[in-house]
Each structure stands twice: as structure tokens, then as C-alpha cells.
Design a protein around this nucleic acid. Sequence first.
DNA 1: GTCTATACAAAGATAGAC
DNA 2: GTCTATCTTTGTATAGAC
Lengths: 192, 192
Amino acid sequence: MAGDTRDRMIDATVEALRRRGVAGMSFTEVLRDSGAARGAIYHHFPGGKGQLVAEAASRNGRDVRANLAALPADDPLALVESFLALIRPVVECSATGSGCAVAAVTIASGEPAENASLREVAATAFASWTDALAARLRVSGLAPDAATDLATTLLALLEGAQVLCRAEGSVAPFDRMTRTALDLTRTRYAAR
Amino acid sequence: MAGDTRDRMIDATVEALRRRGVAGMSFTEVLRDSGAARGAIYHHFPGGKGQLVAEAASRNGRDVRANLAALPADDPLALVESFLALIRPVVECSATGSGCAVAAVTIASGEPAENASLREVAATAFASWTDALAARLRVSGLAPDAATDLATTLLALLEGAQVLCRAEGSVAPFDRMTRTALDLTRTRYAAR
DNA sequence: GTCTATACAAAGATAGAC
DNA sequence: GTCTATCTTTGTATAGAC
């Protein structure tokens, strides 16, 4: 098939970004994991590493966004609870070294032009996640401003938890954080 | 002087870690910024890149911990407010590409042995930050468990905000997150 | 202890046969 | 479109003069 190789290369790149970041990742690794040949890189991605990484981060951004948009929105508290339940498996991966691909793309290492382009991709992905979460929070009854603020907070918690859990090699930081988050949200948004 | 060169090299490494991460950072950069000669690296750091990076992350960990331990602890709400005020300038640096040096050390790229060692350094630093924050929260009146949970949450917010603000190139995500954090903390811990 | 010069490996990028 | 082979650059690591 045609686009199959290209697809597998992007998938392998997402995984490589998660584990090693853009500077730490290598074509050797991507080619090994995708089974593609060396020349396939510049055939499918004339822009080289920058283009491959950008497409990988972009795909990951869309995938995650779809998950967030499908969250139940009965009320704010339920949404926070289901958000935390949704991301726990993701954070568990961080405990074994697999972080956020979009966050990884944030770290600059090359020339300003390429960096700006990659940061733009990351910013777009994060914005789409914030928007998806905020939309659900509005549906659940929150005012627009409060929804955006809380959505950003939840996203910061997700990204932060991945960092802490990767360092500690366990989900314990996430679970501690979850207790506080639920405690605070219940106090504030309980439909009592 | 004797330890001066070594010190400047560590400082330059902290800065390099913040901007480019461990895989993206190079000796060339560190030598340029510290004014040291090429041979100085293995003279002062026989363990090579691994040792230099570990010492840099470790120093940064101690510095940040000292700042956290000095936070006023009149009551939980005041502590959260002063924590957010303390970290805002740090997060502002993220908007121009300078992230958390300890978080950077978390990303594996080389052989398992070196990776484990660096993750250990990061875990120790994060644990010391959590402990410092939790200690202040206990002084401010929180129960031990609640203090540890909230400390972890604040740390996750700090790390997450740096990621989001670096991607977006502005402090706006931090400010949104701050509004929610203050709103929730006031509702929960207001000394009314 | 500080510096210059260099060895060695790995990465990204290309060329061109099939 | 896919593959092999290779060029060029960069980075880590080391040797040895001063």
C-alpha cells in the first residue's frame, strides 16, 4: 500500500518523541521501529526531521483532542472526575519513561526558524485541548471564563503530573494530586 | 581562583538544560558560555556529560528548594498566594524558552544506567521541593496528608504551567490557571 | 590546572541504483 | 516508491604540551 509506510513512520516518531524528545530521538530509531528504509525519510518528508516531528506532534494533538471532546459533561464535578480517570493510564506511561509528545516538541534545540515552527504546532495542539475541555465544561454548566480557566488548570495538572511521575518512576504523585483536585472541586462545585 | 571555572560551567549547564534539554545541549555551548577550555570538562568532571548534567540539576534543585522553604506560612491560602507570586517570574522565563532544568533531566536519551542515575537526581530534587512545600503547609495549619497532597498539586501546576507557557510563548496560561487555583483555594481554605 | 589539537562515533542529509 | 551506500557535520571523549 501507499501511505502505510508514511503512517508507520509517524507513529514511530510519536513514540520516539515521548521517550527521548526531539533532540534525543534519531532517524535510526524511527526506521528500526517502522521498518522503513533510510531513503524513505526524505522521500515522504522532504522537510527532514522538522517536518516529520511536526506531523507526529500534530497527529498526536488531534488524537488526544478527540478523547477530550468525548468526555461526559453532566456537571463540572463529573467532568473533572472523568478527566482524571481518562488521563491516569497516560500518566502511568510516564512512570516508565513515556511523556507527552506535544510537550517534547516544545523544547528548542536547533535554529530559531525550525524551533518557532515546532512551538507553533505545540501551541495549536494545546489550544485545541483547552478548547475541547472548556467546551465540555460550558456544557456542564460553567460560565465561559471559568470554563477556560479550569480547562487550562486541568491541562497544566496533566502535563505536570507526567513530569513528576516520570522523574519518580511511579504514579504516586498523580494520585496525591488527584485527591487534592477532587477535594477542591467537590467543595467548589458540588451540586448540593 | 580554583573552583571558579567549575562553578561557571555548572551555571552554564543549568541554563543550557533549561533551553535545550540534556540531549539538545552541547559542550560547545557550555564552554562558550562559561569561557572554559575544552579540556576543562574532563578535568573537572571525569564522569563526562552525565556527571556535569547531574551536578547542574542537583544545584538547581537545592536553589529552588531554598526559595520554597522561605515561603510565609500564615495560613494555607496565604501560602498558595505567595507560592504563585514566587513562581510567576520563573514561568515568565518559560514563555521565552527557558523551562525547568530538573524536568529536562527527566528525559532519557542514552544508556539505561546513565538515565537511571539522572532520573534519580530529578526525583530527589522534586521530592525535596514537595517536602519543603508540605512542611510550610503543615506550619500553616494543614494536616500532614492534606499538606503533602496539596504540595504535590502545586508542584504539578508549576511544571505544567512551564510547559504550556513555553509552547504558547506567553504567561497567559499561567494567569488563567492562577485564577482557578485561587478561586478553589479560597473556597476551600478561607479562614472565615 | 589550563589550553590546543585530535580521535572516534553518531546524527542528519543526499545520490543514485533498482 | 523502495532500498543501499555515502557525504558532511557535530558531538563526546582523549592525549599531551605548557
